[in-house]
């Protein structure tokens, strides 16, 4: 796992969000094993304590579970993953709406734009 961290925001949150996105899109399948804290820490180049915190928070969401001495695994409960995916999508959507409304777009404008972009995508 590698990405640019933004030092203005809590780093553990950024790691957690990145892992949630990866799980949501199936990069780590249900029941699959996540990389170890050390591996993530080395990839992102942060303190392992920070990664441990991200894992702890992630565990609280029920998306992963840590088995003593074995590592951290994605839940086999696909419903939890699906819910999380939906929820994240809603967050992304909400952020998008905030930004697009700043440009003066109404809901109709958004629908029109979506339809137009879909057409463009087909071609």
């Amino acid at each position: 796992m590698q990405f640019e961290i933004d030092e203005r925001q809590p780093i553990y949150r950024q790691i957690m969000d990145a892992l949630i996105r990866q799980i949501a899109r199936g990069h780590w399948p249900p029941g699959g094993k996540l990389p170890s804290i050390r591996e993530v820490a080395e990839g992102v180049r942060v303190n392992p304590n920070t990664v441990a915190r991200a894992f702890q928070e992630l565990e609280r969401t029920g998306l992963v579970e840590t088995r003593r001495g074995e590592g951290t695994f994605v839940t086999i409960d696909t419903k939890v993953i699906k819910d999380c995916r939906e929820e994240t999508a809603r967050e992304v959507w909400a952020e998008f709406l905030v930004k697009i409304r700043e440009l003066g777009f109404t809901n109709e404008d958004v629908q029109r734009l979506a339809a137009e972009l879909k057409e463009e995508g087909k071609r």
């Binding site: 961290i5 030092e7 925001q9 809590p10 780093i11 949150r13 942060v46 303190n47 304590n49 920070t50």
Partner: peptide, 26 residues
């Protein structure tokens, strides 16, 4: 920066700001 859990800012012999790095970021 990314390796600290906790930071202590020292100025003229006083810790003027101190805390958990992530909390300070938030």
């Amino acid at each position: 920066e990314p390796i600290f859990d906790h930071v202590v800012f020292l100025r003229e012999g006083r810790n003027v700001l101190e805390g958990d790095a992530e909390t300070l970021r938030a």
